[in-house]
């Protein structure tokens, strides 16, 4: 057997966990829109890249920290999400049109976002400046790049905040209720459409933060979003659709798997990991590992 250095394994594991937490931030939005609301928003990664570019502009023009910039962008993304849901609701959900056209709608949105960004910014890689990009902490043999650690912490805070919101607040519980029984909600004199719009807007708002985290971790160009389609849906399905703790665990698993793949086989194989996992999970355990 080949002797694999111990510290290499530990570092790959730590890198995987850091990456996984970030993946959770990228996926929570889809866990809400796809997992809870049953809206197959394939354009989600497109909105994340949009978030990256807005963080980039604010960072470059005003010198603001990208994470602060993303917090400022939250209302804008919330409004954008509400708008997209309104169009989706009017043209597909209300008419009872088959979900497949909705799918084509989001696919078109993803593509349009990408091409518009290409036309405006070109295909050059863009990056942000922040004090924590560059240095790293060394604890024993473990390497902790702050570039990964800061997004990891922000991501964990985001997932935790959403989990508290969904389980403890009135609107959050109403959102969970929409997923379970829309009619019952209507009988309680609550409007499912309004609650769904709020939930979808929140899911798009997470893109502002996830986008800022993405551009902290790696330079971004418009087509980067495509790689994330596989990741977010793999994690979402793996985590059992709509469960945020499940999403976090699924994201960690994928992060570790990808980290080991790039350490031992080379980074060029990493993109296939997410989709390979997705195909396997869909084929053998469609309800996810922690399925409802």
């Amino acid at each position: 057997m080949v002797d694999i250095p111990y510290d290499l394994i530990v570092n790959a594991l730590v890198a995987g966990l850091l990456l996984g937490a970030f993946y959770a931030a990228v996926t929570v939005g889809v866990s809400i829109s796809f997992g809870i609301l049953d809206i197959v928003n394939i354009a989600h990664p497109g909105f994340i890249i949009l978030g990256s570019y807005l963080a980039y502009i604010i960072n470059a023009r005003l010198g603001l920290d990208p994470i602060v910039a993303s917090l400022l962008m939250l209302p804008v993304f919330y409004a954008l999400g509400a708008l997209v849901y309104q169009v989706y609701y009017q043209s597909f959900e209300k008419r009872g049109q088959d979900a497949l056209r909705g799918l084509a709608f989001f696919f078109g949105l993803l593509f349009v976002t990408e091409i518009v960004l290409v036309l405006v910014f070109g295909v050059d890689y863009r990056y942000v400046h922040a004090s924590y990009i560059g240095p790293s902490w060394n604890i024993g043999i473990v390497d902790l790049p702050l570039r990964m650690l800061v997004p990891c912490l922000v991501a964990l805070a985001l997932v935790a905040a959403l989990q508290v919101f969904l389980t403890k607040t009135f609107i959050g519980r109403a959102i969970m209720g929409v997923a379970q029984d829309q009619l019952a909600l209507q009988l309680m004199a609550a409007s499912p459409t309004r609650i769904k719009r709020t939930a979808f807007a929140i899911s798009i708002a997470t893109c502002a933060i996830a986008g800022a985290l993405l551009i902290i971790i790696q330079p971004v160009e418009p087509s980067v979003g495509r790689e994330y389609i596989g990741r977010v849906f793999a994690i979402c399905v793996l985590g059992g659709l709509g469960s945020l703790p499940g999403t976090l665990i699924g994201a960690m698993m994928l992060g570790i798997l990808e980290s080991f793949t790039s350490t031992f086989y080379g980074p060029s194989w990493a993109p296939a990991v997410a989709f390979g996992v997705l195909l396997l999970v869909l084929a053998f355990r469609p309800s996810g590992l922690f399925g409802r």
């Binding site: 497949l100 793999a234 296939a272 989709f275 997705l278 869909l282």
Partner: peptide, 12 residues
């Protein structure tokens, strides 16, 4: 799910 599966197939 099928649609996403075909996307996965393409990337693999």
């Amino acid at each position: 799910f099928f649609a996403i599966g075909t996307l996965a197939l393409a990337v693999v």
